[in-house]
Design a protein around this nucleic acid. Sequence first.
DNA 1: ATAACATTGTTATTAAAATAACAGTAATTT
DNA 2: AAATTACTGTTATTTTAATAACAATGTTAT
Lengths: 207, 207
Amino acid sequence: MNRKLPDKTVERLSQYRRALLNYKSSGKHHIFSHEIANLLHITAVQVRRDIMLIGYTGTLRQGYDVQDLIDIIGKIIDTKEGQKVAVVGIGNLGRAIMGYFSGKRTRLTITAAFDSNPEKVNRIYAGIPCYHIEKLTEIIRNEGISIAVISVPGEFAEKVAQDLVMAGIKGVLNFSPKPLNMPSHVYLQEFDMLTILEKVAYFVKKS
Amino acid sequence: MNRKLPDKTVERLSQYRRALLNYKSSGKHHIFSHEIANLLHITAVQVRRDIMLIGYTGTLRQGYDVQDLIDIIGKIIDTKEGQKVAVVGIGNLGRAIMGYFSGKRTRLTITAAFDSNPEKVNRIYAGIPCYHIEKLTEIIRNEGISIAVISVPGEFAEKVAQDLVMAGIKGVLNFSPKPLNMPSHVYLQEFDMLTILEKVAYFVKKS
DNA sequence: ATAACATTGTTATTAAAATAACAGTAATTT
DNA sequence: AAATTACTGTTATTTTAATAACAATGTTAT
Ligand SMILES: NC(=O)c1ccc[n+]([C@@H]2O[C@H](COP(=O)([O-])OP(=O)(O)OC[C@H]3O[C@@H](n4cnc5c(N)ncnc54)[C@H](O)[C@@H]3O)[C@@H](O)[C@H]2O)c1
Ligand SMILES: NC(=O)c1ccc[n+]([C@@H]2O[C@H](COP(=O)([O-])OP(=O)(O)OC[C@H]3O[C@@H](n4cnc5c(N)ncnc54)[C@H](O)[C@@H]3O)[C@@H](O)[C@H]2O)c1
């Protein structure tokens, strides 16, 4: 529970929880590993192994208690107070992300957006205030924002990333096509749509 | 060159190419592995190993010929005719994706969009026609579209995926939060923003 | 009561990816 | 000319992730 879990296990835990919350609303209280596996289209062994890693145990007769499992995953992923997220770059992608999160009930809350375009600042997008990029450090520090999503054009991504680090951010999700370099105490996740689609194209070609 | 390359190598090749195209515009014709590595913030060994896998060799004195490397990566990733891509679900995310691609010069071309909302169909978004979802099979077959991006709400994703498979699609990039199941001849890549942000949150918490 | 079954939890094995080690080589320095 | 340097290309090792194997256990069927 205290030891760091594998990257991929954490991703699946997030998905288990989401699937379980949905499953729970159908009124069932228990679930078997192979049922969870079916929801995610993975194997039951993978599910049991992940659950073993988080130290939870089910029962032979009924499998896992749905609510218990949801709670335990919550204890692993969430913090008590929740974590605050900022979105930097309120273009098409930034706004899509904010719209997507505005509906969600999660312990991750987007509480601030930043842009350099004067026409975008001091407005509210999906319920979230957009500040001028110059306020970045101040607001991130004051609000205790620990995670940032970068969705500015590539040429500005590096500067934004540096400022985020200086402001004390601890985790970054970078959607810009510019590969970033972060100090080791900042967790960096990058996702590039063109790269990923070109990968799909390669495997389509090969198949 | 013919043998299937590792997943992660293909992703990096796409990034190498993009970085090299940019590097080329600075007028330089040759590049060393450690220079490529610096552009992507990875190690030079990783770069050389990837390049070894694609069967290209540089020279001791000058490193790699930039244009040659770009061309060889192109031969690996691209098809001669290019590949056509469809986007299904023209909401905030779908439109952001279309806007993002409309500027790019790539052998991947988004040629059709689909939606179920009558107000969205028969309009042009970022230069791409949006058809009613009922035309999916017809248009995908007629146009020879081989790759699809799914950006419909989770509850419709499964149906869309089935229809795409029936229509003969060969690769899918799924942004909906619903995990999909594909026959083995269809390459599936999933990306879920909430999962990935929760993973970032976990590692932020742990650090 | 015993055998067959279905399930969990764990260890063992395999596969994929990253990293390290190092041999080879041309140019440069001593 | 020998040693040094700065690279590439390849093999070896380590790390991470996935898969397989199987022991343990309560349940059901015979
Ligand atoms: N749209 C997509 O689906 C998509 C997909 C993958 C990657 N991306 C990448 O994400 C980024 C954003 O994409 P987009 O489509 O939203 O682009 P966009 O041009 O619509 O939006 C970019 C926004 O960033 C703002 N901005 C520019 N410089 C800034 C700075 N220094 N500080 C703060 N804000 C700044 C701009 O004012 C604009 O609002 C780009 O790097 C793009 O390559 C987009
Ligand atoms: N916005 C984001 O950044 C984001 C991020 C991650 C994931 N997602 C996921 O991507 C999907 C789309 O997100 P969005 O923000 O664009 O949502 P959205 O509601 O803005 O758009 C969804 C679109 O899909 C269309 N649609 C619905 N049913 C359809 C069907 N059967 N066939 C064709 N089209 C159909 C709707 O008419 C609408 O235009 C959702 O599943 C969402 O969970 C969005």
